[in-house]
């Protein structure tokens, strides 16, 4: 079985700060991590490899420093890794990103047919959830998003049964390989890699690909290949006024009484809802 897992290196958003004067994102010193949602997909891929054998290739498009994320993924047990990196990819929106990644997956497919592609549900930086569906559509693969559980895989009939989260319930879907799957968060938890995996992750050479390796049409990547244009970046407007403070002498019960009086006089309509 050949499984490709797409991972994205993202800044650890808990630590992002905005420069108070220039309103730009201060990335310096912010650690880069594997997009947390991608780990659920990677773990699921590794479980399938444990069961059926074969290999898991991790793929990322990003700057050269994204190598660290690929090595991390290999330390969990991924077989090999492709880093797709080229200045020409800079500024890609999701349509251009899915084109570049699909080009790389096609090349991997020529080397050994790909049965499954896994993507994260979404990223924590761009947060669009659009790249997975983009890849599935371009590869003409069955698209199975928000998967809570893979119930069954049958390699002979090439059938796969999954539970997919939808609004108000869970769909049980029967589909066929090749398919593109995005896993729901919490559907599994990432294993600890073995010592062997860690050594292998440090030693194995990565496949370093660029646009000439696999991209047919240069006009479809980067800014040029992106239909969306970011026209403005700005800080949310602070509310004009700060909260009006409710002050009262006499402790919590006096404060509570003053708050309720304030609500009832300022919002007479709300009063009905509150003491109905």
């Amino acid at each position: 079985m050949h499984i490709v897992v797409c991972i994205k290196q993202v800044p650890d958003s808990a630590q992002i700060r905005i420069h108070p004067v220039t309103n730009t994102i201060m990335r310096q010193g912010v650690p880069a991590i594997i997009n947390p949602y991608d780990l659920f997909s990677l773990e699921e891929a590794l479980r399938l490899k444990d069961r059926f054998g074969g290999r898991v290739t991790v793929l990322t498009m990003g700057p050269p420093m994204a190598e660290a994320s690929l090595r991390k993924a290999m330390s969990f047990g991924a077989t090999d890794a492709v880093l797709l990196t080229d200045r020409k990819f800079a500024g890609s929106d999701t349509l251009a990103t899915s084109y570049a990644l699909t080009s790389a997956i096609r090349k991997l497919h020529e080397e050994e047919p790909v049965d499954l592609v896994f993507c994260g549900k979404q990223t924590i930086d761009g947060d669009t959830a659009q790249v997975g569906p983009g890849i599935a559509t371009r590869m003409n693969m069955q698209q199975l998003t928000y998967v809570a559980k893979i119930e069954d895989v049958n390699l002979d009939s090439r059938e796969i049964t999954v539970q997919r989260r939808s609004e108000g319930g869970v769909q049980v879907l029967k589909s066929r390989l090749p398919a593109m799957i995005t896993m729901l968060e919490g559907s599994n938890s990432m294993r600890f890699g073995t010592m062997d995996d860690m050594f292998r992750a440090a030693r194995t050479p990565l496949k370093l690909w660029n646009k000439d390796t696999c991209v047919d049409d240069e006009a479809k990547v980067g800014l040029k290949g992106s239909p969306t244009v970011v026209s403005k970046v700005f800080v949310p407007k602070p509310r004009a006024e700060k909260a009006k403070m409710i002050e009262a002498e006499g402790g919590a019960s006096a404060q509570a009484a003053a708050a309720i009086d304030m609500l009832f006089t300022t919002y007479p309509k709300l009063a009905n809802d509150l003491v109905r």
Partner: peptide, 22 residues
């Protein structure tokens, strides 16, 4: 929603157009 995000990502790709999320 789960339906909207799944469908929007697919048809923006078949239509080869821009899609702004969320």
């Amino acid at each position: 929603s789960t339906l909207g995000r799944d469908l929007a990502g697919a048809i923006a790709t078949t239509l080869l157009t821009g899609l702004t999320a969320d």
